[in-house]
Design a binder for these strands. Structure first.
Lengths: 244, 244
DNA sequence: GTGGTCCAATGGTCCAACCAATTTCTGCAT
DNA sequence: ATGCAGAAATTGGTTGGACCATTGGACCAC
């Protein structure tokens, strides 16, 4: 007797159906990330469901980072959606202490190096031009403001992830980046944070432009190493004043 | 003027506040995974918010896989929660095709290699003994059943992730592993899948036992490479029969 | 025991408002 | 005409109350 031939029947799945319909809509209208999707009221009317049900569905999407809701403005698509999408919610225990931060840096080290190497292998000429552009912007911001600029720095790295040909790199690191900032930007001493990592951005770019995967990997590792050093130094200073 | 001393006021964050309160409750009551948490109606009454708001909050948790709701029965905790938990929802675009699978393998390659290297550096003697035990079990299963056993193979790798001293490795790869199996175990030709990767399990172990990070990293990379080859071969075979 | 019926509890959906933030429009002063 | 403050419309957030669908236990007849 094969028990698998008796799958549980599907009796109610309203909000799931709403999401499916929404995926269809996004594809039909070819909505791009950043665009606004219909109001909750319109969706409710069109789909013949309650606005509450629409909201439950959208809440799911928001929780998954697919969509952003702005009160008074509307609901905006954050990433491209496709009908066969896999959701992988990770809940990472532990959070605010130095140890967890170093752990996320170890993950980033692994991914950053691999992404840089893949980028050196597969980036198109247009990709490389774009990376060079971001690098220029970042270096200029560094000179004028005499310090690392999180925003421009992040843009540069994102360009590399995109050029790696594997969107997962950007997604995973972006998720960690968000957490990183939410918990650590302010509390830790961030005065000259990342100063030491500055020169490696250009060396990474040069390896990529020269199609040198191993070199790009090594330079990326050096960059992360300097960041980790900065963090350790900051944590050491911090240790003198407070205790959790 | 330090703009950071003027944080945005908290005018609306009802459902977020509900989640925070819920985290507090779970900790106060020391709820374990599997246990039932209070009714939506009770939560609404106790927290002085609408039941709809409670539902939005719980929908978020459900989407993150923290909780499971069963109509007519109740809402049940699925994993242990802690106040400083990091949520990292990943959505993998494109699902069932070969490309997305290779993309997840690239991520796994990066993480697996790093985890093996860290493990070689930091594993305790007990950790190494445990890894050896899992390896023996896996090899025996391989011989008796004459083929890779997903279960025992996975246990072996998990032991390495744990010994890496960084729980994030296990969590991230575990999430991908689940997806991998859900979508690919059956459809693809899995007859002698992973046969080629078998010998590398022992070589990885030997490098770890010898405290050789670079060797462990290289062997892990070789293992993933064989798996990727197997997948490419399977996909090539598949291409002859069907077309999406 | 076995199976059936009933019933209370619980999550799922719906409706109709109102609140709060945002955007857009309007009309007055310049 | 132009610029800008204030009104109005739009949109997501919240509320309270109602009803439906499913579940699980209590109770009963056989």
């Amino acid at each position: 007797m094969d028990q698998n031939s008796l799958p549980p029947i599907q009796t109610t799945a309203r909000d799931d159906a709403v999401l499916k319909a929404l995926v269809g809509f996004v594809r039909a209208e070819a909505l791009q990330p950043g665009e606004r999707l219909p109001t909750e009221r319109i969706l409710a009317e069109r789909l013949k469901v309650s606005r509450n049900t629409v909201r439950e569905a959208l809440t799911r999407w928001e929780g998954l980072g697919l969509v952003e809701r702005r009160q008074g403005s509307g609901t905006y698509l954050k990433v491209a959606v496709s009908p066969d999408m896999l959701h992988m919610p990770l809940t990472l225990a532990g959070g605010n202490d130095f140890t967890s931060l170093m752990q996320t840096m170890e993950i980033r080290r692994a991914l950053e190096a691999e992404a840089a190497a893949l980028c050196a292998e597969r980036a198109s000429q247009a990709d490389i031009t774009e990376i060079a552009r971001k690098l220029d912007i970042m270096e200029q911001a560094f000179r004028t403001r005499d310090g690392m600029s999180s925003e421009e720095d992040w843009e540069f790295h994102q360009a590399i992830y995109r050029a790696s040909g594997n969107p997962l790199f950007e997604q995973i690191i972006a998720a960690m980046y968000e957490l990183f900032h939410r918990f650590w930007e302010h509390p830790l001493g961030v005065r000259d944070f990342g100063h030491a990592s500055f020169p490696y951005h250009r060396t990474i770019y040069e390896c990529i432009a020269a199609r040198d995967p191993q070199g790009a990997r090594d330079e990326a590792l050096k960059l992360i190493a300097t960041v980790e050093d900065d963090l350790k130094r900051g944590a050491a200073k911090l240790k003198l004043s407070s205790q959790t």
